[in-house]
Structure formats: C-alpha cells, structure tokens
C-alpha cells in the first residue's frame, strides 16, 4: 500500500549549502523530518550547481520518512547567471540589460528540458528565447 503523504513542502535553497538553520529547520522540522539527513542528501545532490538557488519539493509521509526531488532553477535565474546580471530589465522592450549567445540559450534549454512542457529541443529553445526577451536580454549569434 502506498504510504500516506502528510505534506509537500517546496523550498528554494542554495545548491550544496543547506544547513539546519531556517528555512530548512523551520519548514521541515514541524513535520518530524530528520533535518540533518535532508541537508546531507540535498547537498550531495546539488553541490555541482554551486552558486545557484535550487528548488526542491519535499514529500513527507505520515511515518516521518521523506523523499525529495530537485528541479532545475527557473529559466530567468539561469539567464541571469549566464549574462552575469543581478536582475532583468524594468522595460524589456526599450532597455536591454545584457546579451547571451545562441549557444548559451541552447545549453539552458538542455538543462531545463526535464521541467519544461516541451516535446522538442526546438520548443525548449524558443521558450528560453521568450523569457530572455521578456527580461530585456538580447540573444546574439
């Protein structure tokens, strides 16, 4: 029989740097999760993405056991990292704040593929291009 799910908590925390301090402790502690165990597992699985904030969805069962999946960071976050930007443009049509190359767009699309509702690489690339446009980031070849 499937285990009874008690909660599904979503957290976005820096890759490889989870500690039992808030928010991990305060978000998962009340559900009876062993915080240190979660941190060790999260850090092992995300340490390679150092510098990014990684979304994780933690499923907690009635017996206090837990599983979690990590998602890829939002496209906007990946674009900002590649373009070395703090934030997108306030007026994306008029003010361009940065550029990324077509190859970088393709790499982001590849990273995001598992989480995007896209059947093809081409569709994923156009999604990423759309987000870049909405942030005032130009794509150059």
């Amino acid at each position: 029989m499937a285990k009874k799910i008690q909660a599904m908590v979503k957290l976005q925390i820096p890759a490889g740097k989870a500690t039992p301090a808030p928010p991990v402790g305060t978000a998962l502690g009340p559900h009876g999760v062993n915080i240190m165990d979660f941190c060790k597992n999260f850090n092992a699985r995300t340490a390679k993405d150092d510098g990014l904030i990684i979304p994780a969805v933690v499923t907690i069962y009635a017996d206090r056991s837990f599983t979690f999946i990590t998602k890829t960071p939002p496209v906007s976050v990946l674009l900002k990292k590649v373009a070395s930007l703090a934030k997108g443009s306030a007026e994306p049509n008029r003010t361009k704040v940065g550029t990324v190359t077509a190859k970088q767009v393709e790499e982001i699309a590849k990273t995001k593929m598992p989480d995007l509702n896209c059947d093809s690489m081409q569709a994923a690339v156009s999604t990423v291009r759309g987000t870049a446009r909405s942030m005032g980031i130009d794509v150059v070849d």
Binding site: A7, M8, V9, K10, L11, Q12, P14, V24, T26, A27
Partner: peptide, 8 residues
C-alpha cells in the same frame, strides 16, 4: 532562500 510552504 525561499520557503514556499506546504502545497497540501
């Protein structure tokens, strides 16, 4: 960090 709470 961002805590987006319990979806349930």
């Amino acid at each position: 960090a961002l805590d987006q709470g319990d979806a349930l």
